[in-house]
């Protein structure tokens, strides 16, 4: 097997995650899909790290994880406060930008 297959798998996961962002209305699930996309990116970074033979890719993946953790913390806080004020976790309900 060629290690390039990891990249194909990452692309597939990323696309699935993106499709989930577009399809799901529940903010929490949307968030999970974003995490899925980030993980797919991490997979490519690790695969590329192996390909280039240095650890920089893993470092970047590590940073991505940290940023994802921070993002999740803030994002979930936003979802909780949103739910508190609107009693709904649907992203479609937060459509105040509509004309």
């Amino acid at each position: 097997m060629n290690p390039v297959n990891y990249l194909y798998l990452a692309a597939l996961l990323f696309t699935i995650g993106a499709a989930g962002v577009l399809i799901r209305r529940n903010a929490i699930v949307v968030f999970m899909c974003i995490e899925l996309m980030l993980n797919a990116c991490n997979l490519t970074l690790v695969a590329f790290s192996r390909m280039h033979g240095n650890l920089d890719g893993q470092i970047i993946a590590f940073f991505v994880m940290v940023v994802a953790a921070a993002e999740v913390v803030v994002g979930l806080a936003i979802i909780v406060s949103l739910f508190r004020s609107r009693h709904s976790a649907s992203v479609d309900d937060a459509s105040l930008m509509k004309l």
């Binding site: 290690p3 990891y6 798998l9 929490i28 968030f31 999970m32 995490e35 993980n39 991490n42 997979l43 690790v46 695969a47 790290s49 192996r50 893993q58 993946a61 590590f62 994880m65 994802a68 953790a69 999740v72 913390v73 979930l76 979802i79 909780v80």
Partner: peptide, 30 residues
Amino acid sequence: FYLANGAYFLGVVQIVVYTGAIMMLFLFVV
């Protein structure tokens, strides 16, 4: 897969931080 690709540290961190901490956070919010 991280482990298989030689990223041992990342593999562990993935399990501990992601699956352990972040997903638990998700479950709490759920």
